[in-house]
């Protein structure tokens, strides 16, 4: 149980997918102009990461059995992710139309989000079946960490809108510099967990 919480917190904060893993930057910079869109992206990403992570973990074992893991895993996991995303989009569109209005436009963007594929590749590398608590913690922790960072960054971006930045730095450039300082701050947490 302790291992679960340790892995959860460490994948959420210390090995944060944006600040320490450099993944998911396209939507991190593009979506976080408004907090509401950041919230929608985070929720949708958590959902997709959870299911695709678990499925890819299982498929990793299957492919290793068939001995085609080395060259098929990328193709198989990206197919799983894109079909999961399209399936989710269809289901939400049909059964929860109001939810589709808020979340629906972000779902196709998740296909090209590096966080999901990075998680699938990381989780597929586990060869031991008893690593399930750790896998579960990673699969929950990575998107939640991304969610926290994107929410904090959208608040910072909203505040930077009103600042006196020169025109060429406004927008993504100043956001990246702020992300660098956030990475400095999170660097100090290494070793706490």
């Amino acid at each position: 149980m302790v291992a679960f919480y340790t892995a959860l917190l460490s994948s959420m904060i210390v090995s944060n997918s944006v600040l320490a893993g450099y993944k998911g930057l396209c939507s991190y910079l593009g979506i976080s102009k408004k907090s509401s869109s950041a919230f929608g992206m985070g929720v949708a990403l958590t959902f997709v990461c959870f299911f695709s992570g678990l499925i890819c973990w299982g498929l990793g074992f299957l492919l290793r059995e068939l001995e085609i893991y080395d060259f098929m895993f990328t193709i198989v996991s990206i197919l799983v992710i894109s079909s999961l995303v399209q399936f989710t989009e269809l289901v939400i569109k049909k059964f929860f139309p109001s939810l589709y209005k808020t979340l629906g436009i972000y779902l196709p963007l998740i296909t090209t989000n590096c966080v999901v594929l990075g998680l699938a590749l990381q989780v597929g590398a586990y060869t031991d079946a008893s690593s399930f608590p750790e896998v579960l913690a990673t699969v929950l922790g990575v998107p939640l960490g991304y969610f926290i960072v994107i929410m904090l960054f959208s608040c910072i971006q909203e505040r930077l809108e009103t600042s006196n930045t020169k025109y060429n730095f406004k927008g993504a450039a100043i956001g990246l510099v702020a992300t660098a300082i956030m990475a400095i701050a999170v660097y100090g947490l290494g070793g706490v967990i």
Partner: peptide, 13 residues
């Protein structure tokens, strides 16, 4: 990573 974000942001600007 810290230097990466920093350099990247400054060069974009």
């Amino acid at each position: 990573g810290i230097g990466g974000f920093l350099t990247f942001g400054i060069i974009v600007g």
